[in-house]
Structures are given as structure tokens and as C-alpha cells.
Simulated assay, not measured.
Amino acid sequence: MSTPLLQVSNLGKSFGGVKAVDGISFDLHAGELLALIGPNGAGKTTTFNMVNGQLPAGQGSILLNGQELVGRAPRAIWRLGVGRTFQIAETFASLTVVENVQMALLSHDGRLFSMWRSASAYKRDEALALLEQVGMAAQADRPCSELAYGDVKRVELAIAMANSPKLLLMDEPTAGMAPRERNALMALTKQLVVDRGMAVLFTEHSMDVVFAYADRMIVLARGRLIAQGKPLEIRDHPKVQEVYFGSGKTFEKIAQKSAEISGVTGETA
């Protein structure tokens, strides 16, 4: 197997005497969607923010293509090819759809701009090409304030692609979306992973989405990694079932629904 794009080793973070993340390790390869899941308080957000540089790691290593990310600022990590979307979509509501993407391109290129001067001429074709990939080119000249929430999430995805990321971090990408919208967004993300050969690490509470679209899953509980593997392995893992449900319940119904969503059944679910 090829060398992983992302290698996380013995990663940890404490707040006072509480170990929010306790020495976890995992890999992520190009062309792969990896879901980071766990119950509330498991350490998912802390892990996510350490990979992104928003929180300094207390211990361990995070390598992206062999380059250490620990100790780097979020902007420096972004420039190395790490994109991010947020649980609450981050866009400029007063700007048009295409101007939002152009602002991201300006930032990536390190260009200075004036708030009094329109960015409408800067790499418009490139911005439109990104919007085409997420199905938003037809709405390029509409203000973001007029968009439905699902469309705002698509614009945010186009913005995250402005630095041609090798790794895309998606924090609760389908939060606040209707079932049809969230499945459309994750299907789009899956296609971008295939087309661009990038990797995606995402957190998600909707288990039907996770089982339908993740290639692999890692599960945290109380800051520790308790399981990792393909969706079927996680579905049948007794420790994971215990953490989520206690005894007597399983992921079976969720997995069946996920198979219907993704159009697959059996071992490929």
C-alpha cells in the first residue's frame, strides 16, 4: 500500500487534569473518506482542531506528506494544502457567490486587496470553475444571503477547494441540512475525492451518512481510539455498539438505511 497522506501518531491533549485526547494514532490515504466518530465528549473536535492547527498538540506527531504540522499556525497548514469546512457555514453573506470564492483565491495567492475595491475581476474564470464542480455556477452572481442553507454549504465547499487541498477537513458537514440535501452534499464530496485524488477527514453525527459514504471509520470514546476499520467492521464491533447503545442494540438498521442511500448492499455497504 502507498505511504499515507496523513499520519497521526500518539496524539494527545489535556485540559487541566482531563485528557481530552489520549495518545491516538491513525492514517489517511489519498482518495479516501475517513469518518471520525464517537459519542459526545469523545475528543473528536479536539482531534480535529489539532490536525488543523487551531489547538496546539500536547504530544505526538501529525505528518502531511512527511511534513510535520504540529507547531504550525492554521494559515501555514492551509498553505500546505489542508482545506476546511465548518459546522456552521462560513461565507460573506453580503458578497455574491463568485466573489466569496474569489476572496479565497485572493487569500491563497497572498494578494492584498482593498475593501473599497471590487474583487470581481480577479480569477473569475477559476472561481466559476470551482463553482461548476459543486453545482453552483448558475447562481454565481447571487448574494450568498439569498441562498438556501444547502446551497451555502456547497459554496463553502468551493471556497475550501480554492487552495487545491490535498486534505479536506469537514466538521459536521451535513449539520442543519434536510436528508436529501445532506446526501447530495456527501455524494458530491465523494465524487470530488475520486476526481481530485484528495483525502477527506470528517466528523458527523448522522450515522446513516457515515455508513453510506465513509471508506473507513475511526471511533473515539473518552479520548481514546477504541476501533478503526471499514463500515461493516465498525457496525459489528461490540465495543462500539456498547459505547453508542449499551447492550442489546446494534447499528443494523442504520447500516441498512445507509445501503439504500448509497445504492449498495452487502459487503460494500
Rank of each mutant, 00 (worst) to 15 (best):
N49G: 01
N49W: 03
M50S: 09
M50C: 05
M50W: 04
V51S: 10
V51N: 10
V51F: 01
G53S: 13
G53N: 14
G53P: 13
G53C: 13
Q54T: 09
Q54H: 11
Q54S: 07
Q54K: 03
Q54C: 07
L55C: 00
L55W: 09
P56C: 01
P56H: 09
P56T: 12
A57N: 10
A57R: 12
Q59V: 01
Q59A: 15
Q59G: 13
Q59N: 12
Q59K: 13
G60C: 09
G60N: 06
G60H: 02
I62R: 01
I62G: 10
I62N: 10
L63F: 01
L63A: 06
N65I: 00
N65G: 14
G66Q: 07
G66A: 03
Q67Y: 00
Q67S: 14
E68Q: 11
E68D: 06
E68S: 05
E68W: 01
L69T: 06
L69C: 05
L69P: 06
V70G: 11
G71T: 08
G71D: 07
G71M: 04
R72A: 06
R72I: 05
R72T: 01
A73G: 07
P74A: 08
P74S: 06
R75I: 12
R75N: 13
R75Y: 14
A76Q: 15
A76I: 10
I77V: 11
I77K: 05
I77M: 07
I77L: 07
I77R: 10
W78V: 09
W78A: 11
W78T: 14
W78S: 14
R79W: 02
R79T: 02
R79G: 11
R79L: 14
L80F: 03
G81F: 01
G81K: 02
G81A: 10
G81Q: 07
G81I: 07
V82D: 00
V82N: 02
V82G: 04
V82C: 04
G83F: 02
G83M: 09
G83R: 03
R84K: 08
R84P: 08
T85Q: 05
T85R: 05
Q87F: 00
Q87G: 06
I88V: 11
A89M: 01
A89V: 15
A89K: 00
A89E: 03
A89N: 04
E90M: 05
T91M: 03
F92P: 02
A93T: 02
A93I: 00
S94R: 10
L95Q: 08
L95I: 02
T96Y: 07
V97N: 10
E99W: 04
E99D: 11
E99N: 05
E99I: 05
E99P: 02
N100K: 11
V101W: 11
V101K: 13
V101L: 12
V101N: 11
Q102N: 08
M103C: 15
M103V: 15
A104K: 11
A104H: 07
L105T: 09
L105I: 14
L105G: 04
L106R: 14
L106Q: 12
L106E: 09
S107W: 02
S107E: 13
S107R: 15
H108Q: 15
H108N: 12
H108A: 14
H108F: 14
D109E: 13
D109F: 11
G110V: 13
G110Q: 05
R111I: 14
L112M: 12
F113K: 03
F113S: 15
F113I: 03
